[in-house]
């Protein structure tokens, strides 16, 4: 079996986000880039399965849609343990474009298990996995918190309100993974880091695909209004404010 893990290149989650060009673009100056945390969990689970199923998993490949500056992030995935990588040479504009590119690659190379993080920490699109499923006409399981292969049978669990659903499916399929899929992301080892550059990183040119959405601009969350204090004696004013201004009673 072959596993493909789709990875996004996102700003470190502690980045102070600033926008430029009339709030239409992220100011990338000084930003540290990382593998999207959910994708990193997916990768870790893929590698855990590969380690546990000696010989059953032929390879773990990572794929990213991005320009050359995402390669350090891709090599980090190789350092963590992926066997090979593919980069589709395109600046990703929206989920549809990304899914289209991924689908093209997957159609040509038969992957049995395709893993996506449930969302990317930057755009929070949460839609690539679902789109891929539709484009490839294969099943997808969202919010996957458990994935394993037992005697060639795929077992999954997905998060539902107050519990879990246990699911069986045939390959190929897409698992859209949620936290819980593995304990902690793997720390790459020295050996992994030193070997990352010698693993194959294939760059392929994109197919034509138009964005379905257009980014108009970003807005910052409204800053919280200052706290107003009402004198403890003045219950009447408090009730009035809650009723008329806050409109909560």
């Amino acid at each position: 079996m072959k596993i493909l893990v789709c990875i996004s290149h996102v700003p470190d989650t502690t980045t102070k986000i600033k926008f430029i060009n009339n709030n239409t673009a992220l100011d990338t100056a000084g930003v540290q880039w990382i593998i999207n945390p959910w994708d990193e969990l997916a990768l870790t689970r893929a590698l855990d399965i590969k380690d546990a199923q000696a010989g059953a998993i032929e390879s773990v490949t990572v794929i990213n849609v991005g320009l050359v500056e995402t390669e350090p992030t891709i090599r980090k995935a190789l350092a963590i343990g992926a066997d090979k990588a593919i980069r589709v040479n395109l600046e990703p504009k929206d989920s549809f474009v990304i899914a289209t590119q991924l689908a093209e690659v997957i159609k040509k190379d038969n992957f049995d298990i395709i893993l996506c993080g449930i969302e990317a920490a930057d755009g929070n699109g949460s839609s690539v996995g679902g789109m891929l499923s539709e484009m490839l006409d294969i099943p997808s399981v969202s919010a996957t918190t458990f994935l394993d292969i037992e005697n060639g049978q795929v077992k999954l669990q997905r998060e539902i309100d107050g519990g879990h659903e246990v699911i069986a499916t045939q390959t190929p399929f897409i698992a859209i993974v949620q936290k819980g899929i593995c304990k902690e992301p793997r720390i790459p080892s020295m050996r992994g880091i030193m070997g990352a550059r010698s693993k194959p990183l294939q760059v392929i040119e994109p197919v034509t695909a138009d964005s379905l959405t257009e980014l108009v601009n970003y807005e910052y969350p409204k800053s919280k209004a200052a706290c107003r204090k009402v004198d403890a004696e003045n219950v009447k004013e408090l009730v009035q404010l809650l009723h008329e201004e806050a409109k909560v009673i």
Binding site: P72, R75, K76, A79, I187, P188, S189, M190, I193, A196
Partner: peptide, 14 residues
């Protein structure tokens, strides 16, 4: 370089 940054991150993660 890239490897040195990865090693730095690795040490921090450890």
């Amino acid at each position: 370089n890239e490897e040195q940054k990865m090693i730095s991150d690795m040490c921090g993660d450890f």
